[in-house]
Design a protein around this nucleic acid. Structure first.
Lengths: 401, 401
DNA sequence: ACCTTTCGTAAAGAGCGTGGACTAATTAAC
DNA sequence: GTTAATTAGTCCACGCTCTTTACGAAAGGT
């Protein structure tokens, strides 16, 4: 499972950790002098110099222009993350599109590409091949900018077993027990990692959205199904098998419609995108996003005060509020973030949601956590995937010599 | 919050960690030779010898009788945790009793004392004074055995803010916003830590019950209210404010009876001890445990096939199963452990519980986590509290020079 | 008895952060 | 315009901790 924290510490371990400490501070404070790094980290100036020299020779950081901080004294040289060195590739498979995204070590987006394609029921191998092609394209495109992709992370809309590298169940793709590791163009060329779309979207929110201000948060990412990414101490909480945060199958209405999971009245059947559209009397077709998409139409109807639409969204909001009350009681986050479909629908979903949410659990704690709306919407998962790769490099720069 | 993992590593840090590594292995493999420790940890024999010498001089471990492991060769000396050195004191405040318990570094119970007292509505200061007296008694009692109490942990039946050291809400004690740190006899004499009864009961289960075999687990500890302790990677998951695992206020029956928390149909109102007793037509009085207690009577009635009793417990089991389905979807544990009142009632509670549980979430994953029954029942929280102190010492032996 | 195996320790060596002194580059003051 | 003050970064000796190699100690096998 995770590293057992029971590992002996040697000199090499010490170096690795300290390189990471320095690199993290450089990344967070961007152009920063060695002297200031010494203050920030508590190291001596000597040690900082040594560590920075190593990072520099690994191509991870770069000394730039002089920085004058105080009034008097010699100016220091600003050390920054090397923007044109290593980079992270994020990939996403979703029901109606494939996406790729490359960010540099400074978390700047350097490349982005989305191709729409109907992956519902398509042969998994074909989808993965298309994804590999997209990845190869991204790698060569950013190579022109001087970037070297250090690794990839892939967001998938389903439950997956990260140890075996198998997608257990992706209902909207129609995948069951599909092995994903060892895809030719990916693992062969790049170290790739696979994770749930909801988890990566939450990380996207952490790194490119609300940031650390959110504290420990739960990011609700409804696309087709409803999932949640749980971020605790700036890391994703995955549970014992990586299935944590399956919000979509909490029971919202015990007497509600049956669900593919075998239960009845699952949240997904009431607040899922398709369920809302259906209840609003709208067709459930592609394209799923953008103007002219079902969600866009739904928003139009809501704006014009359409009764069935308003009712559908209100019902979804109340159901989601109930599920989030459970989340608050069990996970106790600082913040709740609404992403995915709920982001454009927030104006209508949030009031009933908050009413139900605060009804249940408010009096025991100091009130209910604030419910925020993500500004990232669809792009969150790819961003999070790319960010994950970069974050891995920053957390263990020793891997790159 | 927690240690930011962003701390520089120096030589001293290295030593501290490595002392802990060696001590943990000694504790886990009890009489173990230096040579075997070298294999287990990956250190050289020299380093092990040095570290063991330090631990020995701190009084934490002791070299004992020769141990002959292989067929040939010089026998090694078995190093064990020093049973008569440092010890941990666990304390518990509950509605109808106060308890104290001391365990030594080898996790052997060396002292145990429970005094029944009706703390419901009693002045918090008086309760804490009584607890301090109990603690002082325990400390002097084990001093006679050569034990030195290194710290204390206190289990409290309510939500508490661990940063401020304030009990926010303990409905069954009638406490609201009661400061607990700085209690004269405790913090003055001993470093004390305070935590939720449910969390400590889960740790008790981890260290004195099912152990690591359980993996990541959720321990349901119903006494008066219903709480759950969530153990992930051998540590308690507390959430952002320490309120995680508040199982009792998940909504079990949306149209159910109102709850003191402001909601309706909370699990506690259906599967809480008092709710079950009331539904079974039994009085809700002290003493809460032992023969002649309401629960004992309930078990008798269940054994004799009493209708209302069976119905009450069946309903509780179904409600608990529904709540645990939410837990499984959100937390994804390896195992679920039934403790507290549910331990003696398991025979009747478990079948309906498992029926409801597996109905909801089984098909998405590889089945539902096994539901086990704790063998510790009431004592779990005090044991966990005492264990926590010992565990702290083992995790950072450098604190004791 | 003697060889083999295994345990524990001792002495020398290597890696890495520390501490203090030293050089470099800038501003403030006279 | 020179000098003092201040801050940045480097150099070198040192100390701490793990490793390597070597050696003596205590058993069993022959």
């Amino acid at each position: 499972m995770t590293k057992s924290a029971n590992a002996p510490v040697r000199h090499a371990t010490m170096r690795e950790r300290n390189l990471a400490v320095v690199l993290e501070h450089i990344a967070r404070h961007q152009p920063v002098t060695r002297a200031r790094l010494a203050e920030l980290t508590g190291f001596t100036k000597t040690t900082v110099s040594n560590l920075v020299a190593l990072l520099e020779s690994a191509g991870l950081v770069r000394g730039g222009a002089p920085v004058h901080e105080g009034e008097r004294g010699r100016p220091g040289v600003g050390v920054s993350v090397h923007g044109d060195g290593a980079a992270g590739l994020g990939l996403e498979v979703n029901v109606d599109y494939l996406a790729a995204c490359v960010i540099d070590l400074g978390k700047q987006v350097r490349y982005r590409h989305v191709v729409s394609s109907d992956n519902r029921g398509r042969e998994p191998g074909a989808v993965l091949d298309a994804l590999s092609a997209l990845a190869a394209e991204a790698v060569s495109a950013v190579a022109g900018q001087g970037l070297t992709v250090a690794g990839a992370a892939v967001a998938l809309p389903g439950l997956l077993d990260r140890e075996d590298g198998v997608v257990r169940h992706a209902p909207n793709l129609g995948w069951t027990d599909v092995p994903v590791t060892g895809a030719p163009g990916l693992d062969a060329a790049l170290p790739a990692e696979y994770d749930n779309e909801a988890n990566l979207a939450a990380l996207g929110e952490l790194w490119f959205g609300g940031g650390t201000r959110l504290g420990d948060f739960v990011h609700v990412s409804g696309e087709i199904g409803i999932g949640a990414g749980i971020v605790v101490d700036r890391r994703v909480f995955r549970g014992a098998h990586g299935f944590a945060g399956e919000l979509g199958h909490l029971v919202a209405e015990p007497a509600g419609p049956p669900c593919s999971c075998g239960g009845r009245g699952c949240l997904e059947q009431i607040a899922g995108q398709e369920a809302i559209l259906r209840a609003a009397g709208l067709p459930v077709t592609r394209p799923a996003a953008g103007p002219g998409s079902p969600v866009g139409t739904l928003v139009d109807r809501l704006n014009s005060g359409d009764g069935p639409a308003l009712h559908a969204v209100d019902r979804a909001g109340r159901a989601l509020g109930g599920a989030l009350a459970s989340v608050v009681n069990l996970i106790d986050p600082d913040t709740i973030v609404l992403g995915g479909v709920f982001s454009p629908l927030a104006e209508w979903v949030r009031p009933p949601l908050q009413a139900v949410l605060s009804e249940g659990s408010g009096s025991l704690r100091r009130g209910v956590p604030p419910v925020e709306v993500s500004g990232l919407a669809e792009g969150a998962a790819v961003l999070g995937a790319a960010g994950l790769v970069v974050e891995r490099v920053i957390a263990d720069p020793a891997l790159l010599l």
